[in-house]
Design a binder for these strands. Structure first.
Lengths: 371, 371
DNA sequence: GTGAAAGCGCTAACAG
DNA sequence: CTGTTAGCGCTTTCAC
């Protein structure tokens, strides 16, 4: 305010080099703006903007002006205000990332790759933890929109799809990770869960098992449904009847794995093998087994989904179906930026990444069928 | 453009209720703005803004107008543009979160609490993964500033402090988590590492151990230095000479743990106990031990820092020094918002959270001293 | 009770 | 080669 007039009537000529500016400006601790640089250098904000956005040559700005501006900008430690920039350009260089539970190593891995990949594109990510609640997921999506993100990577909670339908047209680019909805035409990346579960089950069958329990996670979510399908397909293929009472559990948690295994041990004493559909379920199963003094794999064999880093270090190194979550994160970012950059209609389908069966020591070869 | 004149000369009176607006407006798919609502309702943007920011009563806006505005806003699915808002208010309701490696469960836990806590304050978080690189950490801090975050929670990489000095005055509120710098007066939250390491070491000593190796992580970082100090203090207290050749390792990784343990086994055959300063180091140690056919705890005892969820499920359930990382995240957010909200000078000191020694089965009682 | 207008910091026509 | 001006969507004096 003090020197408003000075600013307005500033002559662009002969800005005597070390003219003492109003000291409050020189040492002020608020972020410098284009205006301030303009004032201190005697050039217009336009020119500063052009130089600092690398358009100096396009506008044939003199080398001298350019270097002067750059120098001053550096001196003042100028950082462009992305808010203003975003408002003007309608490009915020930001995407949203919605994760049900970042403390789950599976999602943490995805988040890491997504963050890293996003940064490569010069974008930032706003992180939302939906806490496995559809309510919070909806809220997060709204919040992200109000912050003008250009796209979002969403690991949906997974049971309701209504709130996602509106994104189908491509109003806001979105890509689903891990869980998706076959009937909802949004692009997605997931693992080939059918094939993974099938392979795991077949491994057990090939080792002579016929009574194989299936410790499932949250029902009606795509990973769970597909894994159960793979499990059933393997049984059927080998002419083993599917026994629905062997398919138990209802959430992707350690606790569910624990409880269901305890029950199983009581009610189905002939079960000699478990297919666990999630690493947390498996941890719970291990705890239950230990409590009941059953040894793995002598008394009971187990194969689990996911291959957390400690799998090899467990009391019995665990045979697992590994999903490449880092690749999932990477592909998700790729699909998202394809959409953002082309601004064309959404990619139609989804991508299913292959799983890898990692054999360790938790499966025992049965000489004679257990049943 | 088409109906610019209409907009400008819109009379606020008698907006015939269902007057057909230019259809492109009614069904456009771009986010509605105050202007649009104003246009469609025949009230000024000012009024809309006041209603929607809950200042209706303050400005004595008529009940009728208020409800009409609210209704329309809801119909149009209006979401205020936070960019514009932030620009105007100089409040972005956003904080930054810089993590060295989100795939590390320790940091993931902190990130989760920080995200959740932040949301409670109505704020969002921009996540940056510094990949354990000071370079990236500096870059992230700049990026966050350019996005006008109101504060940042930083888990510093930890070896250089120069780039942090500028935050001391409180230009941008910041709180350090896990690693900090005693000589740098920035608020921080960490664990009481000295005491934790000391307790763990004393547990070994009380069980008859005297030759205790220390598997350390990244040197010159505060957690490492303090843990080593705790280790030494315990030894000294019990009149056991500190042998520097027993303090080995140089990074918080599985690999470092593995290599150093292998070497240790060769060069220091009399070592019967290991204090591991990080969960990953411990995993590496376990692998080395298994390869060399040493049993835990029969041949060698081990106590580790951090208590990841699988600790109890390892071949030998691990005795650990647990840090409450969820509490760390929570306290960090609290300290940050204290600063943001008070806009007063920074909190001076830091907070050290107590650790908990969790006894499991990886420590053996030596009947006669091993030395 | 309500509006007009200025301005946050930036970019992009449109002049010269 | 450089500057003037308008405007992104919002809030807030100041005015009536």
């Amino acid at each position: 305010m003090i020197n408003k007039k000075d600013i307005d009537s500033a002559t662009s000529t002969t800005s005597t080099t070390s003219q003492p500016h109003s000291s409050s400006l020189a040492s002020t601790n608020t972020q410098p703006t284009l205006k301030r640089i303009a004032h201190e250098s005697g050039v217009s904000v336009t020119t500063i903007s052009r130089v600092l956005t690398g358009q100096a040559s396009r506008y044939r700005i003199s080398k001298k002006t350019e270097t002067a501006v750059r120098k001053l900008a550096k001196e003042l430690d100028f950082v462009p205000n992305q808010l203003a920039r975003g408002l003007r350009l309608k490009k915020t260089l930001t995407i949203g990332l919605v994760i049900p539970d970042i403390s789950n190593p599976f999602f943490a891995g995805i988040a890491q790759q997504a963050t890293l990949g996003t940064r490569k594109h010069g974008y930032s990510v706003i992180l939302c933890d939906s806490q496995d609640s559809t309510e919070l997921e909806i809220q997060s999506l709204g919040l992200l929109q109000s912050r003008n993100v250009e796209g979002v990577v969403l690991c949906p909670v997974g049971q309701s799809t209504d709130h996602l339908a509106e994104y189908v047209g491509g109003r806001l680019p979105i890509v689903l990770v891990d869980r998706f909805y076959p009937e909802l035409p949004l692009p997605y990346v997931s693992s080939d869960n059918v094939s993974g579960a099938k392979q795991a089950t077949e491994l057990l069958i090939e080792n002579g098992h016929r009574r194989i329990a299936c410790l499932q996670g949250l029902r009606h979510t795509s990973p769970n449904e597909f894994r159960v399908r793979g499990y059933k397909e393997a049984l059927t293929k080998h002419h083993i009847p599917v026994d629905e009472t062997l398919i138990v559990g209802d959430s992707f948690t350690e606790q569910s794995g624990y409880i269901e295994t305890k029950l199983l041990l009581k009610t189905q004493p002939d079960v000699k093998a478990i297919l666990s559909l999630c690493n947390l379920n498996a941890l719970g199963a291990i705890r239950a087994l230990a409590e009941e003094k059953r040894n793995v794999p002598e008394d009971i064999s187990i194969v689990s989904f996911d291959d957390p880093p400690y799998s090899a270090y467990l009391a019995t190194p665990m045979t697992t179906v590994a999903q490449s979550y880092s690749e999932m994160g990477e592909v998700a970012v790729k699909l998202l930026f394809d959409q953002i950059q082309s601004s064309r209609g959404q990619t139609k389908g989804g991508i299913l990444l292959p799983t890898t069966l990692i054999k360790r020591k938790s499966v025992k070869r049965l000489e004679s069928p257990s049943n």
